[in-house]
Nucleic acid binder design. Structure first.
Lengths: 249, 249
DNA sequence: TGTACATCAGTGAACGCGCGTTCACTGATGTAC
DNA sequence: TGTACATCAGTGAACGCGCGTTCACTGATGTAC
């Protein structure tokens, strides 16, 4: 019985995997909008209609690619972050952010597929939301762990004049009241129920979006002729954004 | 002679404008990858080959749309920022950022065209870089003006423990040495020769990218089921990012 | 162990569609004398 | 003011291409007795 899988089932699973890999390769050269079932079939040495034995439609194949991309990114972030000492919170943050950038640079079209402009005519089904949250979960855990350990500072707002800061002038702007309900939900799900305050959650989200802004700028060409050593600049920006959350570098 | 333009020239300019407007309308419904010369011609009531009297190719039409989008966004940012008192630097920053978000929400496909994933098979020619820098110039001027007025604080890094900040513990991480040459160039061009230090330039760039990260997340669906009142959240995030530069809110 | 039948993978042709671009052409609009 | 010629806008047909999806089909692989 071979673990409950017949030979046919095994070969089917294998071919399904090969098709998605061919599709991923094509994505890497042509981009999502240009991904075509016929080209995938061609690369597989099959007739185009044969693909329909494995995927119900082109959108179905796209959905699979999206889910796999989210999972690949999530795994890369998890791996990078897992290699850092648990109590080195800024280093965990830096490692996670660096993993995002590196994965994106290595898989630009997959990154564009999940964080770039939506594919025209494609509507993501619900089964993509789980994998999509995977990398966010890592960030949430870093912040939650840091907060639990008392390692999240309340960063003081910069002073207003003269070039020297006004020390102890209180925290940053507080999160808007309309954010409270979202914060409550996120506090339990993403931030592991660590009691992280609304303000920290809000700044963490902003910092998180900021990281992707940096990666997208680099990947989509906005830093062309502007920043030369993009890796070093990214590292610096990530440290600054970490400081916004209150992760001391 | 009518200002040197013959009737033919006037009608030609008018039709060129009408074609780009039809193309923009099509962009707004179908997205950049799906923009087609034939569809534009159809909407114009012309035969498809007639478009070639006005644009050399599909890419040429795309380039025009890109330039116009950069200019429209630039104008929106300029207008919004111009309405704020010159010495209210954080307000100028907030107004400029808000203008980006509002323009993006009103023109999602045009935003995606210029800040989303690159259009497959399209390579932007050099004449797009001028218009692309237009909104960045506004940000540069805000920071330069603020710095000249002594209104850019050196923000103190957040304290590392206990929940209360460690006042006056020095600045944020400094920009990497490899950034110096880029900073020198930007200092003269974008930051209007105001002598803004490397560190401030680096943080301003990061904050700037962060703003676009927020807008892209909102527009491309990453905040779906995460943030409810996105306008208020954006305002808060922008204030935090402004604080990273040292613009006191 | 062998046979009869059901399941399933892959084929090949077809449908109907849209695309960018070229090209020889017809009229209308402009210009020069 | 009128005529001859050049310029230009728009036409219509065509080329050659690719796409997603359907459908009746042929063999091969599996299953039940």
């Amino acid at each position: 019985v071979n673990a409950g899988r017949t030979a046919r089932e095994r070969v089917r699973a294998e071919l399904t995997r090969e098709i998605t890999e061919a599709a991923r390769r094509q994505l890497a050269t042509a981009g999502a909008a240009a991904l075509s079932l016929r080209a995938v079939a061609r690369e597989m040495g099959m007739v185009s209609s044969a693909i329909y034995r494995y995927f119900a439609s082109r959108d179905d194949l796209l959905t699979t690619l999206i889910i796999e991309s989210y999972n690949a990114l999530g795994a890369a972030v998890e791996d990078a972050e897992a290699g850092v000492a648990r109590d080195a919170f800024p280093a965990r943050w830096a490692a996670a952010c660096g993993a995002i950038r590196e994965w994106a640079l290595r898989h630009p079209h997959e990154y564009a597929l999940i964080y770039g402009s939506p594919v025209p005519g494609y509507r993501a089904p619900e089964r993509t939301v789980g994998p999509a949250a995977r990398s966010a979960a890592v960030f949430g855990k870093i912040v939650a762990d840091a907060y639990r350990a008392g390692a999240v500072g309340v960063p003081s707002r910069p002073g207003s004049g003269g070039g020297s800061s006004a020390p102890g002038s209180g925290g940053w702007p507080s999160a808007p009241g309309s954010f409270a309900a979202d914060a409550a939900r996120l506090r339990e799900s993403v931030f592991a129920g660590a009691g992280v305050p609304d303000d920290v959650i809000a700044r963490a989200l902003a910092a998180w979006a900021g990281v992707f802004g940096m990666v997208s700028f680099e990947l989509f060409g906005q830093f062309e002729n502007v920043i030369t050593d993009r890796g070093a600049f990214f590292g610096h920006a990530v440290a600054c954004l970490g400081a916004v959350i209150g992760l001391d570098a």
